[in-house]
Design a protein around this nucleic acid. Structure first.
Lengths: 199, 199, 199, 199
DNA sequence: CATGAATGAGATTTCATTCAT
DNA sequence: CATGAATGAAATCTCATTCAT
């Protein structure tokens, strides 16, 4: 479908050239149509980019949801490992969208900032709520504050993993994944021990 | 000095609008001169951006060198904490340059990619060499491979810290700094223990 | 057709203002379109001028071919007169192209020199071959060297005629034409006599 | 002297790039000064070019005068040969000025046309007057009309020679010179014979 | 004399957009 | 659906010129 191809070409161009560098011509050429034809599907460049970014965010959300709900959640350390793996899998399989996201964060598109930050807030709330739920389900005695600290640490380590995906190659990313999993395991072990926690 | 002001305005505009969004007009307006005057100091937009980026990279390097050599290096855990603190300090004090760097990585400026990757290689080598030196000086029995793993982990955690600087506010960054320091301490402790190492 | 009109306006402006003096604005104004529209038909100013010059050269070649092949070639003196007449006719009817050609020779367009010199070489070869053929057909005993001398003289006299077309008015040009025809007749008569030639 | 060097650089640039292509920067660079310095010597670009062109015309006139008055004028055929030789010598030694002249004729400089055409009129009158004088001195019976025809033919042949100087190399030019001398000799011989003239 | 610094005007070119077909 | 043709606005860049030093 042409409209879809246009969105993909838009994401592709945006990720490597930024908003102003991603011209309607380049996008049209990638889809093998003329620039004038883009206006049959989209009202304007801004409209096109708004929709394209929505696709990136939707993909990200559904990818994260899928991996979250596909997991058995018997073991929390295991869950974090799985989530890290999902993050790596999602972002490496969609490296173009990932770089587009980074571009979005660093040089935000005029008039589209809002959508992105709203998504981030929404995503974080979702993640927080669900992770909290799972952890509570397994470690019933852990207080809210400790749970929050674990999730925060997970996000912190996830950030390192994320930036690694952007700047490293396959090999480097894999090394980071191992480090992330190890780090999280350590953190949980330590936390549980210091909390004098018994499952 | 006009030339300097132009460079600063360029970094500023580049960091928020990307290469194509940072127009010569916007830059000139920020310096309160006319666009034509930019060409007295720089041959072309590309030339201007090349020099601006060189400034960013030079600043980063000298900032890292300063913080590295100003430290006493009596205690390695301490050194890593100090370096993390320096990273945070440098990037938060130069948030514009930092965002410019992220923009550079995600949507690289045509014909300037090379300079940036060359810098990264050079910086990594410098970091590796010096950190290796310090660690060796303090833990004389640690083998190369273990030292390398420690440094790799340091870089991995530093990446999380870095990305946090880009996307969080003061408070979030400070939280990340604590997490990073803790994480590194843990890692070193564990490593030394598992190596059955006695200083 | 717009593209054609643009080419004509280009030749026109080039012939009187030279390459740098013939601006895209002037050309567009002459065609009654906006400068930006020129870029729908031509990639760049250089591209436009390349094509315009090709038109001049093509016109010249086809004009010369037509007049050469339309002639009966029974009498060689007559042929030369006819060719002179054709030169005058072609250049006075296309005085703009002719002046453009002179401009081209004196202040060549950057990166377009090659096309012009290649054309000149090609045209000279064509002229030489065909004139040689006709002369040989009529004066079977004339040796190659003599034929070549006659053609060279024809070209020499043609050059005087050509420059006269550029700098004189109708009357002056006509006077030159008479002189050229006379000169060529004399030369052939003298040459045949001195070669003791009998047809 | 700087002013002189500027004039030479102007002629040089004008001859190869035309008026609009000969920029103040290029001229300044050739003299190894800054563009701003040109304005110490000349009021404006137009002023500079006016003076430069005056130099070309003055050089041409004095060169022609010298060669005319240095000749013994015993033999008219000889005089024409000498004048042709002078033309060739002057223009090949000053090929840059010559090409500048051609550029001037084909793409005249705005507001400077007048000076050039006035010079041409003046030069032609001078040439006519002096040649007429010499011819009359030697062939006292020749009527004005015949003299004028000879001079006209001389100019016509000179034009072929001139254009040859512009487009040919050393060898081609020399061949043209021979042809021109021969042509003029023939013409005079024929004219005298047909006028049934006895010196 | 000479130039560093600056600029208005204008040149070439790009780009998002429109609209008739 | 798609595009050929066109354009206003703006971007990059050039150029002649000025003026204080």
């Amino acid at each position: 479908m042409t409209k879809n191809k246009i969105i993909l070409a838009t994401i592709n161009n945006f990720s490597t050239h930024g908003y102003h560098g991603a011209t309607m011509s380049k996008i049209a050429k990638e889809v093998d149509i003329k620039p004038a034809s883009l206006y049959y599907f989209f009202e304007s460049k801004e409209d096109l980019f708004k929709q394209a970014i929505q696709v990136i965010l939707d993909n990200h959300f559904s990818s994260m949801k899928t991996s979250f709900f596909n997991h058995k959640k018997e073991n929390i350390t295991n869950l974090f490992s799985e989530l890290f793996r999902s993050i790596v899998y999602h972002h490496t399989s969609n490296i173009v969208e990932t770089k587009a996201y980074v571009t979005m964060v660093s040089s935000p598109i005029p008039n589209i900032k809002k959508e992105v930050s709203e998504y981030l807030v929404q995503y974080n709330e979702w993640l927080l709520k669900n992770l909290t739920g799972v952890i509570k389900g397994q470690y019933t005695n852990l207080d809210e504050h400790t749970i929050r600290k674990i999730i925060d640490y997970f996000i912190f380590i996830g950030n390192g993993l994320f930036w690694g995906i952007v700047i490293y190659d396959q090999e480097g990313i894999h090394k980071n994944l191992t480090q992330a999993i190890y780090s999280m395991e350590q953190y949980i072990t330590e936390t549980l021990r210091s909390e004098n926690y018994a499952k």
